[in-house]
Design a protein around this nucleic acid. Sequence first.
DNA 1: AATAAAAGTGACCATTTGGTCACTTTTATT
DNA 2: AATAAAAGTGACCAAATGGTCACTTTTATT
Lengths: 197, 197
Amino acid sequence: MENSTKNRILDEALILFAEHGYKGTNLRDLAAQLGLSKSALYKHYTSKEDIWNCLLDRMEAYYAQRFGSESNLPPQPKSCDELFSLTMQMLRFTVNDPKIILTRKLLLTEQFHDERVKKLATKHFLEGTQRLFAKIFEGMISDGLLKKENPEMLSFIYTTPVTSLVHLCDREPENQAQIFGRIEHFVKHFISTYAEK
Amino acid sequence: MENSTKNRILDEALILFAEHGYKGTNLRDLAAQLGLSKSALYKHYTSKEDIWNCLLDRMEAYYAQRFGSESNLPPQPKSCDELFSLTMQMLRFTVNDPKIILTRKLLLTEQFHDERVKKLATKHFLEGTQRLFAKIFEGMISDGLLKKENPEMLSFIYTTPVTSLVHLCDREPENQAQIFGRIEHFVKHFISTYAEK
DNA sequence: AATAAAAGTGACCATTTGGTCACTTTTATT
DNA sequence: AATAAAAGTGACCAAATGGTCACTTTTATT
């Protein structure tokens, strides 16, 4: 069921849409990548636009469970060292997982061509991540680990610089090691500024 | 000379490429917007790709003079209040100038489809702005206005959050007022954290 | 005024692309 | 085993698109 043709089409569509854009993707290439004929696609989806919309449905569902539910929050750090390692671990994953990379590319490149993508982009790059870390910081502040600052503000100034370097990683994956050095440098600076001594 | 057909074509191409992408733009629409026939375009450019490349040439030239030369730096702030108003003034401009908005959109949406755009994107969104403010902060530190921190780091944590809100402005221009409230809030927080008292 | 170069036009071409359809093959159901 | 539904195929169509060309109009040069 997981690896049904219907899902495989969406998997491959994500790759092509992310790499060449909606307009730059044609159904012949998509079918060829799947070892199918073009007309077979129409047994599962009614049109190119239908594939696009179903892909966005899947992405929205993913974000709804990632950012929507309280259940799968990352573990609450018990120290600033743990905040550091948690952050680096999350980034290491987010920057290397092929599907997440492609999703970021698609959100960036199609955000002005599709209203749903626009909303997902703000959710992914700004609100979602910010709210997630705001909760973490809220806990760390009440545990006396961080200075008593507004956790939303703290999260904003923590996540947006990191996100901008994640985007740089997407552009220059060959420089990932060096960019991670910059991220570590930043995170340490942040901790040294806002850790409660 | 400024308003030659050759330049008008590039002006209109920027609009269409930024709004619909390279692939999503067709030469018939481009010609129609200019009140020209499609074949007239070929009197000035050899192909669609040629138009694209010449547009990038123009953008590169713009960035070379904006970020390259030391000459046109913004005035050095004599106080943190002046840093605040300088920042808000620059943002007010960058977020409302149609050509700059379109340029940002083009850099974002085409960064993974073109090597030159990729490099310009990093220059525009990261290095250029960062270096510009690093110089400003360097001056303010030696003037005793800001704490003695690494100006590059200071600029990084100043410009990347602001840039992320500029992107939000591009996505939601109808919320510009509210977003500017968030920017002001952030800038004040930054100043209160790093101003030398 | 004569002339040549530059700018512009409309018809036309080849290719690409989303989509359809009659038909075959595979899979599941009884 | 018979049968019907699902999955897949290849040929075909119409529209869109980048590009060319012979020809006309405008502009500049002498």
